[in-house]
Design a protein around this nucleic acid. Sequence first.
RNA 1: GCGGGCGUGAUGGAAUGGUAGACAUAUCAGACUUAAAAUCUGAAGGGCCUAUGCCCGUGUGGGUUCAAGUCCCACCGCCCGCACCA
Length: 858
Amino acid sequence: MPGVFSQRTAFMSRYSAAEIESRWQEAWNKAGVFTASHKTDRPKYYVLEMFPYPSGRIHMGHVRNYTMGDVIARYKISTGHNVLHPMGWDAFGMPAENAAMAIGGHPKTWTYDNIADMRGQMKPLGLSIDWSREFATCDPEYYGQQQALFLDMLQAGLVYRKNAVVNWDPVDMTVLANEQVIDGKGWRSGADVERRELTQWFFRISDMAEELLEALDGLENWPAKVRLMQENWIGKSRGLQMTFDLTAPAHGQDGIEVYTTRPDTLAGASFMALSTDHPLSRALEADNPDLAAFNAACRKMGTSEVELEKAEKRGFDTGLTVRHPLYPDQTLPVWVANFVLMDYGTGAIFGCPAHDQRDLDFARKYDLNVIDTFVALDDDTRVQNTAFVPPKTEKVRWIDQPAGLDVATGQEAIDATIDWAETKGLGTGKTQFRLRDWGLSRQRYWGCPIPVVHCATCGVVPEKKENLPVRLPDDVSFDIPGNPLDRHPTWRDCACPSCGAPAKRETDTMDTFVDSSWYFARFTAPRAETPTDMDEAEYWMNVDQYIGGIEHAILHLLYSRFFARAMQITGHLPKKAIEPFDALFTQGMVTHEIYQTRDERGRPVYHLPEDVTDGRLADGTEVEIIPSAKMSKSKKNVVDPVSIISAYGADTARWFVLSDSPPERDVEWTAAGAEAAHRHLARVYRIVDEIVGADTGPQADDETLLREMHKAINDVTLGVESFGFNAAIARLYAFTNTLAKSGAGKAARLQAARALAQLMSPMTPHLSEEIWSRLGGEGLVATAPWPVADPAMLIDDTVVLPIQINGKRRAEISVPKDMPKDEVEKTALAVDAVQRALDGAAPKKIIVVPGRIVNVVV
RNA sequence: GCGGGCGUGAUGGAAUGGUAGACAUAUCAGACUUAAAAUCUGAAGGGCCUAUGCCCGUGUGGGUUCAAGUCCCACCGCCCGCACCA
């Protein structure tokens, strides 16, 4: 029973985050507030943050990501939704193998230990997660279902095998990921990387290019920039496919087929270029050792697009010539060039140096013709060392246009030229996509085994579903480079699922992007004996709000969209889940200053934030401060959430990562900012204590405070719903100041403070529970209904209107909120400053924007 | 190289085309204290200045508009992605 003594103790007490936070976390667990079940009438809401890779330590980026999801989840609980908010681990991948190679141990042990550590670091944050649904992608129960999914996709014709090139390290005798190729050399061996062709598994994502592109329009709650990035990635273009006839047949070929998106510039063609991997280019190697050497040299290089694009443009003249399609008496030389991609179009292009910078650089280097086909409308300067490449929507004057155009835009010319070429039988219009099929094979151990068997008689045979999961063997070692599955003595041996004869397992494992392409669906029924449970999927899908980093804007999200379609085709997801993420939010990074000194040889030495005070090390050495960089272990500009939580509490960390910066932008972690956040929470605690201990009746200020309360409810609600967390927090600061200074009576202040507790509860759930209970709130604030603003309390009776003269603010007037426009005009004209500016003349124009502004033009 | 984004006080940032700088940090002044911390109160974009007055000001240069941080064009700088990192 609360008596004088307990009130006194409350008044004397101080904000102790550690004690408060563990107590309320226990209360939530006990009440099972966050366990999701669909046996309820409330509308469902599925909120998901991109699941983490278990590196072993959570970082501030995780704290920010999960706090944002938590704010949404808690807000939705308060507004009467049945919320699903799960968490899992994207647990396969190279770091576990790298760790095994570097420090010994087993990837599995390393991974599960890390998961345990990270779960332990995450739980103190007080996230509203349904931990009963947790899984890791390296659990056989998960990857076994993924194998089942793969077999269904194989049967549905969504998977196939073909040859593809990989980065090959000739010293370590292993396949390298692009990130393991540094300046064209293997990161461990330092050897020059080569391209090597292997037979690999592919998903037919490019068959869905058109649909994946068109469906982007429906994703209204995705950031426009992500949709645009995906659109450009899919890269639909309409162009012309045509054949350039060889002047003399070569290797049984009469001509070379090219695809171009700029057929309108055909007259400017001055050479033809083949990819080093083009069939003709390979065929020519046989009788041209110099070309063979050239091609071999070009292949000594990584496979990443950046590397290919940035490499010095080099070419080799094959000596072959083709006839110019427009001018059959002219011939063009055929080159092999290292910048032509075999993966796009036909692996052969015609070069038009005047209107393509890369072609121009190539032409200047090898002294090829530069032929202008069009010039600007008002400037007929010819191309020198900068190609003339105006936007396709700009009108230009044509010098030589196949379809006979004079003045037209690039796009008009392209369309006209395709029609013209089709009529003349020179070529056919063709739609081409940049999107390539998704190669999923990885020559690595720590991934989901591809469940197929290679049989001498039956060929490639799918494993039987009853034999799933195909488990990874535990007895492997990482002391020799290469895939341990390849050299395992017994794991590869199995019976052919078709004929029963001795056969060999596939040793490639799946790209980890496969794991993350359907985990959101698995969360709806994480223990199901099939990949998904259609009833649960029907109920919970789609993800109503997905939150993660912009770095996933293309690959992960595109692959997930593909999987949702593939899972629908194979009967694992309902039709409604064809676009699995209704709304997407991409949050920014957490950054920190870098503290740097130099060693005696001038190389940078980095220092941890805790070792630097006022720009100096403990020994007085001044450090150089590099502002605002992504937190990275190697730069030592990391702040460990665990130490922040133990110093200030989870609520402080949560409050800080949400304040200051808009969620989609980077936020800079500063010690001062964290302290300020903590001071504010302590202040809220004190103010509540003071209110609870107060003893005043109704006051004149009551209405003012309650009006402010309703405005705060309105603004914070809008802020939370629109991901304006920083603005919502700024509003909460302002409302706290108002509450602290208010002369209202106890009842009004209690009411306002309870609203404050509720409005803060998505961000600082523990402190909010604590003050909610002190203020006499009923039950848990976590489940209390969200406060609703009274519209009548939001509008003040009078408004202050700024008066502009010629667009510059010169005065202001205070008028009743519903004063008619003409009276506002009259009042504005009567103002001294306006009278002075008019100087007796009549105003040229008066603009009155009701409730906003008045502008007088003189 | 290609694709996408961002740029506002000393600092993080706010601002449905409508009073630029909310809110916070740092700073300064005052109160309380033997003192410090904490707390509370207040000041503050730059400049001219007696100012309730004027000029300048959202990376740079142009444009649209009664009105531009916001829309358009060009440029500069920084960040992200580029298909085997997750």
